[in-house]
């Protein structure tokens, strides 16, 4: 499974689940890029059916609706959807 890493300042352990076609996911990635923070992301729609199934189970733990983007911070909490204010607050930026 391909996990993409974006280099930057490490504010937290960020795992971002996205879709390659989703505009709100693109906006979330853009925000993190603009903030210059380090994060990992997976474009779930580009995976094999088997990997999609596996990740869906993982995302469901954080977000019952399995909607995108789902941003998991420090494996402790998640921000659902494009929430720029929440993201800044949680990353203390």
């Amino acid at each position: 499974m391909k996990i993409n890493s974006v280099k930057g300042v490490k504010k937290a352990e960020i795992m971002l689940y996205t879709l390659s076609t989703c505009i709100w996911c693109k906006k979330t990635k853009q925000l993190l890029n603009d903030l210059g923070v380090e994060y990992n992301y997976i474009d779930v729609d580009t995976l094999t059916a088997e990997d999609k199934e596996k990740l869906t189970v993982e995302i469901e733990k954080w977000n019952a609706a399995v909607s995108f983007p789902t941003m998991v911070i420090n494996n402790k909490e998640a921000i659902l959807g494009y929430q720029p204010d929440d993201i800044r607050e949680k990353l203390k930026i």
Partner: peptide, 8 residues
């Protein structure tokens, strides 16, 4: 929908 995970 571009913003939802389709099953195909």
């Amino acid at each position: 929908c571009p913003c939802r995970l389709a099953s195909g």
